[in-house]
Amino acid sequence: MVSNGLALIYHSQYNLELPGHIFPAHKYSHLYNRVKRDPVYASFDILPPKMAEEHDLELVHTKEYLDDLFSYDHTARTMYSELPLNRSIVESFSYGVGGTILATELTNKHSFAFNMGGGYHHSFPDRAEGFCYLNDIAIAIRKSRESFPNRKAVIVDLDLHQGNGNSYIFQYDDNVYTFSMHQGNIYPKKEDSNLDVHLEPGTKDDFYLSSLYESLSRIKKEFDPSIVYYLAGADPYEDDSLGELKISMKGLKERDKIVRKYCEEIGAPCVITLAGGYARDFRDTVEIHFNTIAAFGEK
């Protein structure tokens, strides 16, 4: 593993104003400001990504879907998104994809590369879903194969919701291992991951963390990746407005440390993305995401 610590990626275009919408699309700028106020991380260079190019998006998404998306047309391909569809939205997602592509490139120099956006794990090749128009993780994995054709990747998805888009996209790809640990009785319609852990409502720290540890131990025996993609969703939190898991702030910090330790043990760099987070107190969502940065930034 390379040993140059943590790289941070952010673009102001990640932010959206969605008044009254449950998706807190302004959390990105609040997280950026939280980093800039911190005595440790304020001095870190935060790298801006480029907007993903169409040929990169076509590594995963169909031309028909992209035509609808970039025409801002409400069609059978775009209608399953729960977000508005306009130029600023599409540009925001394109920059988010660019951030995960850049994070992947930076793992050539850094042990950990943190895109302060991304994690759009519900989008499918031919359609939008949930709060996701473009699948940044899948695109970044396919893009990296231009330089590393046989690279093996594991997706560790710890968002509240199953990463159904990634599970579908990589279901026949032996070089990608999909792992999703999520609340089992809620959205979305489930796809088959290589490893799914369906958690019951009310799950607390001890069971959650032991399940994560056991799952990563199993993956170590079954799969040998050269890169890890970690979707560090803030929504398993006990006060999240969309979920019924009861994971404390402390438990989520420990979760992040377990994932970091797994990466260090297998000697693989890690790309981290934010994914979801809908805490009743918006400040909790920002703090959970910041804690993930701190977990991967510690010496």
Rank of each mutant, 00 (worst) to 15 (best):
N33I: 05
S71A: 15
K63W: 02
F70L: 12
G118N: 08
K63H: 13
C263I: 01
E298Q: 12
Y213W: 05
K190L: 13
H26V: 11
E244A: 10
V176Y: 00
G276N: 09
K253E: 15
F44T: 07
K109D: 15
Y80N: 14
R77Q: 12
D192R: 11
A279D: 08
N86R: 11
L231T: 11
S215V: 11
L31R: 08
A275T: 14
A103M: 02
D281M: 09
N4G: 14
L245V: 10
V97D: 07
E146F: 05
G276L: 03
D256E: 09
V35Q: 11
C263V: 01
S210Q: 14
L47R: 03
S167T: 08
I266W: 06
A295D: 02
D174R: 03
E238I: 13
H182T: 08
S12I: 13
S248M: 08
E91N: 12
S144M: 11
L102Q: 04
S43L: 06
K152E: 11
L16F: 05
D45H: 09
A295I: 04
N108Q: 15
L6D: 03
L66I: 12
D284I: 07
M116L: 15
S210V: 10
H55M: 07
V259W: 02
V2A: 13
M249S: 14
L245N: 03
G98F: 04
Y177P: 00
G98Q: 09
N175I: 00
N164E: 10
H122L: 10
S3H: 12
R142F: 07
R280K: 14
Y262T: 00
N185M: 02
A153V: 14
Y133N: 04
I155N: 04
D284P: 00
E54K: 12
N194K: 12
Y213H: 12
Y237C: 10
P201N: 06
I288V: 13
I186E: 09
D38L: 09
T203D: 09
V90S: 06
A295R: 00
L134V: 07
R127Q: 14
Y177N: 00
P39I: 08
D224T: 14
I46F: 05
E105G: 03
I293N: 00
S180G: 04
A42F: 07
F170V: 04
K63R: 14
E54V: 13
Y14H: 07
F131R: 05
K190N: 08
H30L: 15
